[in-house]
Nucleic acid binder design. Structure first.
Length: 833
DNA sequence: GAGTTTGAAACT
DNA sequence: CAGTTTCAAACTC
């Protein structure tokens, strides 16, 4: 991570709907490998793990790609047995072994490696080890798929981009966290790949190698060896495998690769299914070219489907691999995915980005989010965005999935893509939700993704995306709306949108309108806020809707669903909520983050470190006015006590109108009120608008400045302000500090009042009929008021200093004289001008 | 927990 | 833009 510091990671979370109609069998079905007839059950993986355990000495296979992009293809299986997902990895440079094929040394050419079978190994959790090859790699990406060993539940896919150097410890920490989070039965193994050794996993995983591959280099991972050298442009991979033994605890497979060329990615699948088959099919790895040769891929149809950066992803576009794509953008960037915790956060969900983009972004609490998200339309995003597409195939109705679920793509699915990089995959009838994550190239941060699968009949899916921007972790969850089910406390998405276009619930900014039909274009600010936990609602008239929500919203829904549990006989949503919790809770991102960043647990602090907001109690505003803090902060009401609340997904239109109305009144309405001062330095926060307190002395929470724990500034129009900057905290007693603060407060108040008086006097509101500005013309009520305040302040100061009455009176009179003098002088100045 | 106070937001 | 009203949070009892 240290390598990538300074780079901002951007993640775009997109709902993807997979429409089987749009994509013919020739497209994605072709992606199915020859062995796709095989179906793998959860037991398969277990068996596979056993096998691999035997072969442990040989170490697991490693898929090596020097390239930045990885494509993951999941196959959808209607049966309970689950076919292992296919993994596609682009390989641009060497580093391949027998099974690993890389087609071209040219980085522009990107090969795709399909890996159908994950490599599993069983190791006691305590044996978690991370051995990573050391390279000068600046970045690496890993994809984790976590699926419950019991076969129940949905698998989760995690994409982790991380600096290669730091990956080992982080991965280890992550692995441990993941393990501990779910169950003790999880097995974690971290291996460092080493060149020159045959990759075990690939060998017995049955990778497909094309003879056409050239320059393939073998990369081997040796167990228990640390990479001694990352020599010569070879890819170095670190593999971490987390496997849950039996129980529905999730299995996690983590693979990280490192490359000296600054880009390495490895994708591992750990598939677990409910079926009882004992045989696991070996993983297959093929390049994209191979896939084409094999006829698995049609070169044409899929062409435009994949989001891609203009430069490096070209080949992929041509190749038309659609399923899951990971693109590593810039060489130096780092990204990381972790699981989003489903901890209880009782705070409203952020929905809306600030209307006007980019301008204020760096102020206040969301400053970290602002990094340079740009809309997908922008070229900057497209240069080398990281993209992750997570898709979930529908399951048979009634199928209960455990915490983890493997993302699958039905063979006949089609991907509809817009001009934007954001792609949408729709599965109309199934309401399967897909989410793709796109991170902008320049970002070098970590992404957190959690994918949870819900019950078949529900469209609820959670995807948590966390970004680590500016050193802060941010998590976003994507939740598809259940169009027909009310249990989500959300109203069915309105079909008002034309066609299947998706839109974002972003207030009134023009950027939204630019998005193409099927693509969701998230403006930079939107993404920024998205990263900070705001939500994006996209509605698709045809298909299930997906809402990007902060992690806590998931929990909210879980809680809400729990409430509904007693009410609804059909516990579809309930199961959803359970799945959500299980999926997100299986692997606690919070703990992961905590391990890494020592951040507080999500229970009390949001991922970005912001304390959760208090629930509102609005009664008359419907939570659609700025009176409502939730609304004012662009959040959905969540766990609030409000009445007749319309600040929720169910009142989208109404809410949008309210947002628009607010923006019309104040374009900055949704901007943070607390920004950073300009003149006094960037470190000082200030209230952008200032307060207007009159009676509280700005020392109670009525005062927004005081509430924000910032001193009043020149922006404030408060009267009798005592909320001034604290003096330097030295080694003084509390009494001394209090006295000093009091004196300072009085002085500042006095000075401020004088300044106001001066300003008032200098800008007289009235002139005489003759045009001459006489001093008395300046004695407006305001001036009188301020003068009185000056006198009172002087009296207070005298009292504080315990002057005697005579002295106090003298000081007050002197002050009065000073005020009069100032008024007169101001009058003369005005007259002169 | 009810009532009051307060100041921002909304309204005129 | 200023004054007033509305509103919800903060505060008090």
């Amino acid at each position: 991570m240290s390598i990538n510091k300074g780079q901002n990671a951007r993640a775009l979370v997109e709902p993807l709907a997979l429409d089987s109609r749009t994509l013919g069998d020739g497209d994605l079905s072709a992606l199915t490998l020859s062995h796709n007839n095989e179906q793998y059950s959860s037991n398969d993986f277990e068996a596979f793990a056993n096998i691999q355990a035997e072969l442990e000495c040989m170490n697991a296979e490693e898929v090596m790609t020097t390239d930045e992009e990885h494509i993951i293809i999941g196959r959808n299986i209607e049966t309970e047995t689950i076919v292992p997902d296919v993994e596609m990895t682009e390989v641009s440079e060497q580093a391949q072994e027998e099974h690993i094929i890389y087609t071209t040394a040219n980085q522009n050419n990107q090969n795709i490696v399909f890996q159908t079978k994950p490599t599993l190994q069983r190791l006691p959790a305590s044996t978690v080890q991370v051995k990573s090859n050391v390279g000068q790699v600046t970045q690496s990406q890993s994809i984790m798929i976590v699926s419950p060993a019991g076969g129940q539940g949905t698998s989760q896919i995690l994409k982790i981009s991380h600096p290669s150097t730091a990956s080992a410890g982080q991965l280890q920490s992550l692995a441990q966290t993941l393990i501990t989070a779910k169950s003790a039965d999880n097995i974690v193994q971290l291996r460092s790949a080493q060149p020159n050794k045959p990759v075990m996993a690939t060998s017995h995983s049955g990778n497909i190698t094309l003879g056409s591959v050239q320059n393939a280099k073998t990369v081997q991972s040796a167990i228990k060896r640390t990479a001694q050298s990352t020599s010569q442009n070879r890819n170095v991979y670190t593999k971490m495998i987390l496997a849950g033994n039996q129980t529905p605890s999730g299995q996690v497979l983590i693979t990280s690769s490192q490359n000296e060329n600054q880009q390495t990615q490895a994708i591992k699948f750990l598939n677990n299914s409910t079926s009882s088959q004992d045989v696991t099919s070996p993983a297959k790895t093929i390049t994209l070219a191979q896939a084409q040769q094999m006829g698995l891929l049609s070169t044409n149809k899929v062409q435009h489907i994949l989001p891609s950066s203009p430069q490096k992803q070209v080949s992929i576009k041509k190749k038309g691999i659609i399923v899951n794509k990971l693109v590593q953008s810039s060489s130096s960037q780092t990204s990381k995915m972790t699981l989003v915790p489903s901890n209880t956060i009782k705070s409203p969900t952020k929905i809306l980005p600030a209307p006007t983009m980019n301008t204020q972004v760096k102020t206040s609490t969301i400053s970290n989010q602002q990094s340079t998200f740009s809309s997908s339309n922008k070229s900057t995003v497209q240069q080398s965005p990281q993209k992750v597409i997570i898709r979930q195939s529908s399951l048979k109705p009634g199928t209960v999935l455990g915490s983890g679920q493997v993302i699958r793509i039905p063979a006949n699915q089609n991907i509809v893509t817009g001009s934007n990089q954001v792609h949408q995959i729709q599965m109309p009838s199934r309401q399967v939700q897909y989410v793709r994550l796109v991170s902008t190239p320049s970002s070098g941060t970590t992404n957190v993704v959690t994918v949870g699968k819900t019950k078949s009949q529900t469209t609820l899916q959670t995807v948590g995306v966390g970004q680590k921007l500016g050193g802060q972790q941010q998590i976003v969850k994507v939740v598809p709306l259940n169009t027909n089910n009310q249990s989500l406390r959300t109203v069915a998405p309105k079909a008002t949108l034309t066609g299947s276009g998706q839109r974002l619930l972003i207030p009134a900014t023009a950027t939204v309108s630019n998005q193409s039909k099927n693509a969701v274009a998230i403006p930079a600010s939107a993404l920024s806020q998205l990263a900070s936990g705001q939500a994006v609602l996209s509605t698709n008239s045809n298909v299930g809707n997906i809402v990007v929500l902060p992690a806590q919203y998931i929990q909210q829904q879980s809680a809400d669903d729990t409430k509904l549990k007693s009410q609804q006989a059909t516990s579809g949503l309930l199961s959803n909520s359970q799945n959500l919790q299980s999926s997100t809770g299986t692997i606690s991102v919070g703990s992961v983050l905590e391990n890494k960043t020592s951040q507080r647990s999500y229970t009390s602090v949001e991922p970005n470190g912001i304390r959760p907001r208090k629930p509102c109690n609005c009664t008359k505003s419907q939570c659609l006015k700025l009176y409502c803090d939730c609304f004012a902060n662009g959040e959905f009401c969540h766990m609030c006590n409000c009445n007749n609340c319309s600040n929720n997904l169910g009142n989208e239109e109404e809410r949008q109108r309210a947002i628009k109305s607010c923006l019309e009144r104040n374009p900055n309405a949704f901007r943070p009120k607390i920004g950073k001062g300009r003149e006094t330095g960037d470190d000082i926060r200030r209230h952008n608008k200032g307060c207007n307190c009159k009676r509280s002395g700005c020392l109670k929470n009525y005062c927004e400045c005081y509430e924000a724990k910032i001193p009043c500034s020149a922006n404030c129009k408060c009267i009798g302000c005592r909320n001034v900057e604290e003096p330097n905290l030295e080694k003084k007693s509390l009494k001394d500090l209090a006295e000093a603060a009091e004196v300072r407060t009085a002085q500042l108040t006095l000075n401020k009042t004088k300044l106001q008086l001066s300003e008032m006097a200098f800008r007289p509101p009235a002139t005489s009929n003759t045009g001459a500005r006489q001093p008395f013309n300046f004695l407006t009520d305001k001036v009188v008021q301020i003068t009185c305040e000056c006198l009172m302040a002087q009296a207070d100061e005298a009292e504080r200093n315990m002057f005697d009455d005579e002295t106090s009176q003298r000081l007050i009179i002197e002050e009065f004289g000073r005020c009069l003098k100032e008024i007169i002088e101001s009058a003369h100045k005005a007259e002169a001008t």
